[in-house]
Amino acid sequence: MVKTAPGVLPALRVAAQRPPRARRGLTIALFLLPAVVLFALLVLAPILLAFYAGFFKWNGMGGLPQDFVGLDNYLRLFASEVFAGDLRNMGFLVLASLAVQLPLSLGIALLLNQRLRGRAGYRLLFFAPYVLSEAVTAVLFSMILAPDERGLANAILGAFGLSSTWFADTSTVMPALFLVMTWKYFGFHTLLYLAGRQSIPKELTEAAQIDGGTPWQVFRHVTLPLLGPTIRISVFLSVIGTVQLFDLVWIITGGGPSHASETMAVTMMEFGFKRLQIGYASAISVVMFVLSLVFALWYQRFVLRRDLEGATVNR
């Protein structure tokens, strides 16, 4: 740190007499201010307001809530069958994503890493669904998976004497929804894995091959461990995204039939904007927030710790 010589610039004199550490603090504070203000206004304030509104019975009209009901909203929420269904649906989607979607993405990423004719074309093709907006995807699949003979999927299946009710039955709606989610997001995870795979030095896999490792052994003992950080991040993104799943469900099924595909965010929308029970909807948003936060902290503390260690040491 170079000290400012007194007398260089008259205007700086006053500042120069202050201890440099305080001045540096002031500079930092000034530079941080815009971001902090925005963060407080657009992130912290709504969160705090949701916590606050969650303790009230409030239809959202005319000023701040008045009717304090304590934990009533939360008690109602935890006793509600719809909310229990939300949690079950979330559990199903998280497990299905981890068990099917991510392994599938990993497999495709490894294939795309091979020397393959038209590799760039495949990469583009697989990533394309992720670029589409959720609304477009939802409308598209509402048509493809239409439950009667008009649907493309049923028309094709019909040629083999098969058909499905897709979104129109309580028993098939969740798998159908998962199919759409997978179509939409596998490309994103594939891209992550592909990037991760390409950062693994060729020497390592080559060495393993020369040592007589079978392809499975090379994958299991070299590639997979080195992909660890990427996989852990991809799992994290997938879970958090699933907890907050909204657009696809809202447009395709609206949570139905008979709440079979409802997610927490859909229930929140339903109660906040249709039933005008903003207090109750706020309670749902708080539960969503806490769930995501607890998962994120737990995950960072126990799963991502090794990956983040480098970052903390350098600091």
């Binding site: 657009l42 709504p46 307001l49 907006s133 909204f246 903003i278 948003s285 969503m288």
Partner: peptide
């Protein structure tokens, strides 16, 4: 993507106050 939309929905809900 979906995170943004939900966040926006939540935020508007909360900013309601």
């Amino acid at each position: 993507m979906r995170r943004h939309v939900v966040a926006a929905a939540a935020a508007s809900l909360l900013l309601a106050g």
